[in-house]
Protein backbone atom coordinates (compact mmCIF):
# COMPACT_ATOMS: atom_id res chain seq x y z
CA UNK A 1 0.00 0.00 0.00
CA UNK A 2 1.02 3.56 -0.54
CA UNK A 3 1.77 5.49 2.63
CA UNK A 4 0.30 8.92 1.79
CA UNK A 5 1.27 10.40 5.15
CA UNK A 6 4.92 9.53 4.51
CA UNK A 7 4.72 11.15 1.09
CA UNK A 8 3.26 14.31 2.56
CA UNK A 9 5.99 14.41 5.17
CA UNK A 10 8.66 14.28 2.47
CA UNK A 11 7.28 17.27 0.58
CA UNK A 12 9.53 19.98 2.14
CA UNK A 13 12.63 17.91 1.28
CA UNK A 14 11.36 17.32 -2.24
CA UNK A 15 10.60 21.01 -2.71
CA UNK A 16 14.22 21.79 -1.85
CA UNK A 17 15.32 19.28 -4.46
CA UNK A 18 12.91 20.76 -6.96
CA UNK A 19 14.47 24.18 -6.39
CA UNK A 20 17.84 22.82 -7.49
CA UNK A 21 16.29 20.99 -10.45
CA UNK A 22 14.66 24.20 -11.63
CA UNK A 23 17.80 26.28 -11.13
CA UNK A 24 20.12 23.92 -12.97
CA UNK A 25 17.56 23.38 -15.75
CA UNK A 26 16.86 27.08 -16.13
CA UNK A 27 20.55 27.93 -16.50
CA UNK A 28 21.09 25.04 -18.91
CA UNK A 29 18.09 26.08 -21.01
CA UNK A 30 19.37 29.65 -21.31
CA UNK A 31 22.96 28.64 -22.06
CA UNK A 32 21.96 25.92 -24.50
CA UNK A 33 19.63 28.23 -26.44
CA UNK A 34 22.42 30.79 -26.76
CA UNK A 35 24.99 28.15 -27.67
CA UNK A 36 22.49 26.62 -30.08
CA UNK A 37 21.98 29.95 -31.84
CA UNK A 38 25.71 30.57 -32.14
CA UNK A 39 26.33 26.96 -33.16
CA UNK A 40 23.63 27.11 -35.81
CA UNK A 41 25.07 30.33 -37.20
CA UNK A 42 28.49 28.65 -37.47
CA UNK A 43 26.91 25.49 -38.89
CA UNK A 44 25.43 27.43 -41.83
CA UNK A 45 28.22 30.02 -42.15
CA UNK A 46 30.29 30.25 -45.29
CA UNK A 47 33.37 28.89 -43.50
CA UNK A 48 33.48 25.23 -44.45
CA UNK A 49 35.79 24.24 -41.58
CA UNK A 50 33.30 25.61 -39.04
CA UNK A 51 30.41 23.80 -40.72
CA UNK A 52 32.20 20.49 -40.32
CA UNK A 53 33.33 21.26 -36.79
CA UNK A 54 29.77 21.97 -35.62
CA UNK A 55 28.38 19.01 -37.55
CA UNK A 56 30.92 16.77 -35.82
CA UNK A 57 30.00 18.25 -32.44
CA UNK A 58 26.32 17.52 -33.04
CA UNK A 59 27.06 13.97 -34.16
CA UNK A 60 29.28 13.35 -31.17
CA UNK A 61 26.71 14.58 -28.64
CA UNK A 62 23.82 12.79 -30.31
CA UNK A 63 25.84 9.62 -30.71
CA UNK A 64 27.01 9.19 -27.13
CA UNK A 65 24.98 8.43 -23.99
CA UNK A 66 24.03 11.46 -21.99
CA UNK A 67 25.12 9.85 -18.71
CA UNK A 68 28.59 9.30 -20.19
CA UNK A 69 28.72 12.98 -21.13
CA UNK A 70 27.87 13.93 -17.55
CA UNK A 71 30.64 11.67 -16.21
CA UNK A 72 33.00 13.01 -18.85
CA UNK A 73 32.48 16.58 -17.67
CA UNK A 74 32.58 15.79 -13.96
CA UNK A 75 35.25 13.08 -13.77
CA UNK A 76 37.05 13.54 -17.07
CA UNK A 77 37.62 17.28 -17.43
CA UNK A 78 39.56 17.70 -14.15
CA UNK A 79 42.37 15.57 -15.56
CA UNK A 80 42.51 18.02 -18.48
CA UNK A 81 42.93 20.79 -15.92
CA UNK A 82 39.32 21.98 -15.83
CA UNK A 83 37.81 21.30 -12.44
CA UNK A 84 34.22 22.42 -12.05
CA UNK A 85 32.00 22.15 -8.99
CA UNK A 86 29.20 19.59 -9.00
CA UNK A 87 26.70 22.33 -9.74
CA UNK A 88 28.59 23.83 -12.69
CA UNK A 89 29.50 20.40 -14.03
CA UNK A 90 25.78 19.73 -14.13
CA UNK A 91 24.95 23.01 -15.86
CA UNK A 92 27.74 22.52 -18.39
CA UNK A 93 26.90 18.89 -19.19
CA UNK A 94 23.23 19.67 -19.58
CA UNK A 95 23.94 22.73 -21.76
CA UNK A 96 26.33 20.80 -23.99
CA UNK A 97 23.76 18.08 -24.51
CA UNK A 98 20.83 20.40 -25.22
CA UNK A 99 22.75 22.79 -27.46
CA UNK A 100 23.47 20.02 -29.96
CA UNK A 101 19.75 19.42 -30.35
CA UNK A 102 18.96 23.14 -30.53
CA UNK A 103 21.51 23.56 -33.32
CA UNK A 104 19.62 21.04 -35.41
CA UNK A 105 16.19 22.51 -34.60
CA UNK A 106 17.34 26.00 -35.50
CA UNK A 107 18.91 24.75 -38.70
CA UNK A 108 15.63 23.12 -39.67
CA UNK A 109 13.93 26.45 -38.91
CA UNK A 110 16.27 28.29 -41.26
CA UNK A 111 15.46 25.98 -44.16
CA UNK A 112 11.81 27.03 -43.85
CA UNK A 113 12.71 30.59 -44.87
CA UNK A 114 12.36 30.84 -48.63
CA UNK A 115 15.48 32.02 -50.46
CA UNK A 116 13.39 34.29 -52.68
CA UNK A 117 12.40 36.43 -49.75
CA UNK A 118 16.05 37.45 -49.45
CA UNK A 119 15.73 39.01 -52.91
CA UNK A 120 12.68 40.98 -51.82
CA UNK A 121 14.58 42.38 -48.87
CA UNK A 122 17.60 43.16 -51.03
CA UNK A 123 15.49 44.95 -53.63
CA UNK A 124 13.97 47.06 -50.84
CA UNK A 125 17.47 47.97 -49.69
CA UNK A 126 17.31 46.15 -46.34
CA UNK A 127 20.70 45.39 -44.82
CA UNK A 128 21.60 41.75 -44.25
CA UNK A 129 21.27 42.13 -40.50
CA UNK A 130 17.85 43.81 -40.79
CA UNK A 131 16.76 40.94 -42.97
CA UNK A 132 18.15 38.42 -40.49
CA UNK A 133 16.57 40.04 -37.47
CA UNK A 134 13.17 41.06 -38.80
CA UNK A 135 12.53 38.45 -41.46
CA UNK A 136 14.63 35.30 -41.11
CA UNK A 137 14.57 35.08 -37.32
CA UNK A 138 10.80 35.29 -36.78
CA UNK A 139 9.99 32.92 -39.63
CA UNK A 140 12.66 30.40 -38.60
CA UNK A 141 11.77 30.65 -34.92
CA UNK A 142 8.20 29.73 -35.66
CA UNK A 143 9.04 26.51 -37.44
CA UNK A 144 11.83 25.65 -35.01
CA UNK A 145 9.63 26.15 -31.96
CA UNK A 146 7.99 22.72 -31.60
CA UNK A 147 11.25 20.79 -31.67
CA UNK A 148 13.00 23.43 -29.56
CA UNK A 149 10.27 23.04 -26.98
CA UNK A 150 10.84 19.32 -27.05
CA UNK A 151 14.52 19.81 -26.22
CA UNK A 152 13.67 22.29 -23.46
CA UNK A 153 11.37 19.75 -21.82
CA UNK A 154 14.02 17.04 -22.17
CA UNK A 155 16.56 19.36 -20.56
CA UNK A 156 14.41 19.53 -17.44
CA UNK A 157 13.91 15.77 -17.37
CA UNK A 158 17.57 15.04 -18.07
CA UNK A 159 18.61 17.10 -15.04
CA UNK A 160 17.66 13.93 -13.10
CA UNK A 161 20.86 12.27 -14.37
CA UNK A 162 22.84 14.78 -12.35
CA UNK A 163 22.05 12.84 -9.17
CA UNK A 164 24.72 10.45 -10.44
CA UNK A 165 27.44 13.04 -9.77
CA UNK A 166 25.91 14.00 -6.42
CA UNK A 167 23.93 17.09 -7.28
CA UNK A 168 21.22 17.43 -4.66
CA UNK A 169 18.28 17.85 -7.01
CA UNK A 170 14.83 16.27 -7.02
CA UNK A 171 15.81 12.73 -7.99
CA UNK A 172 18.80 12.79 -5.62
CA UNK A 173 16.55 13.68 -2.69
CA UNK A 174 14.15 10.88 -3.51
CA UNK A 175 16.85 8.26 -4.00
CA UNK A 176 18.62 9.42 -0.87
CA UNK A 177 15.50 8.95 1.26
CA UNK A 178 14.85 5.58 -0.29
CA UNK A 179 18.35 4.48 0.69
CA UNK A 180 17.49 5.10 4.34
CA UNK A 181 13.78 4.44 4.52
CA UNK A 182 13.02 2.09 1.63
CA UNK A 183 9.80 3.79 0.63
CA UNK A 184 10.50 3.60 -3.09
CA UNK A 185 6.95 3.62 -4.45
CA UNK A 186 6.06 6.75 -2.47
CA UNK A 187 9.18 8.63 -3.47
CA UNK A 188 9.19 7.70 -7.13
CA UNK A 189 5.50 8.41 -7.46
CA UNK A 190 5.97 11.78 -5.79
CA UNK A 191 8.82 12.93 -8.02
CA UNK A 192 7.07 11.65 -11.14
CA UNK A 193 4.10 13.84 -10.30
CA UNK A 194 6.37 16.80 -9.63
CA UNK A 195 8.36 16.38 -12.88
CA UNK A 196 5.15 15.96 -14.81
CA UNK A 197 3.66 19.11 -13.30
CA UNK A 198 6.74 21.16 -14.21
CA UNK A 199 6.83 19.78 -17.74
CA UNK A 200 3.12 20.43 -18.26
CA UNK A 201 3.52 24.04 -17.17
CA UNK A 202 6.49 24.54 -19.52
CA UNK A 203 4.64 22.85 -22.40
CA UNK A 204 1.58 25.01 -21.83
CA UNK A 205 3.73 28.15 -21.98
CA UNK A 206 5.38 26.84 -25.10
CA UNK A 207 2.10 26.12 -26.81
CA UNK A 208 0.87 29.60 -26.01
CA UNK A 209 3.96 31.02 -27.63
CA UNK A 210 3.41 28.71 -30.60
CA UNK A 211 -0.14 29.93 -31.07
CA UNK A 212 1.03 33.50 -30.80
CA UNK A 213 3.67 33.01 -33.50
CA UNK A 214 1.22 31.00 -35.57
CA UNK A 215 -1.34 33.75 -35.76
CA UNK A 216 0.05 35.45 -38.84
CA UNK A 217 0.00 32.27 -40.84
CA UNK A 218 -3.45 30.99 -40.04
CA UNK A 219 -5.77 31.54 -42.94
CA UNK A 220 -9.14 33.16 -42.77
Amino acid sequence: MIDWAYMWEAVPDLINGLGMTLLVSFLAIIFSLLAGAVGCALRVSSVKALNYLIAAYVEFIRGTPYLVQVFFVFYGLPSLGLKLSIFWSGVVALSIWASAFHIESFRAGLTSVSKDIRNASASLGLRAWHHGLFVVFPIAARSALPSTLNTVVSTIKNSAYLQAIGLVELTFVAVDRIAYEFRSIEMFLAICVIYLAVVLVVSALGHRLERRLDRPYVGR
Binding site: S114, D116, I117, N119, A120, S121, L124, G125, L126, R127, H130, F134, V135, P138, I139, R142, L213, P216, Y217
Partner: peptide, 23 residues
Protein backbone atom coordinates in the same frame (compact mmCIF):
# COMPACT_ATOMS: atom_id res chain seq x y z
CA UNK B 1 8.59 39.17 -58.26
CA UNK B 2 6.73 36.26 -59.77
CA UNK B 3 6.01 34.75 -56.35
CA UNK B 4 5.21 38.06 -54.62
CA UNK B 5 7.78 37.36 -51.87
CA UNK B 6 5.76 39.11 -49.20
CA UNK B 7 6.82 38.67 -45.59
CA UNK B 8 4.44 35.95 -44.36
CA UNK B 9 4.81 36.84 -40.69
CA UNK B 10 3.93 40.52 -41.09
CA UNK B 11 0.62 42.23 -41.76
CA UNK B 12 0.08 43.87 -45.12
CA UNK B 13 0.71 47.24 -43.48
CA UNK B 14 3.94 46.05 -41.83
CA UNK B 15 5.07 44.51 -45.12
CA UNK B 16 4.87 48.03 -46.53
CA UNK B 17 6.55 49.78 -43.60
CA UNK B 18 9.47 47.51 -42.62
CA UNK B 19 11.90 48.88 -45.20
CA UNK B 20 10.62 52.46 -44.86
CA UNK B 21 11.43 52.38 -41.17
CA UNK B 22 14.73 50.56 -41.26
CA UNK B 23 16.18 51.73 -44.56
Amino acid sequence: FQNFNLYPHLTILDNCTLAQRWV
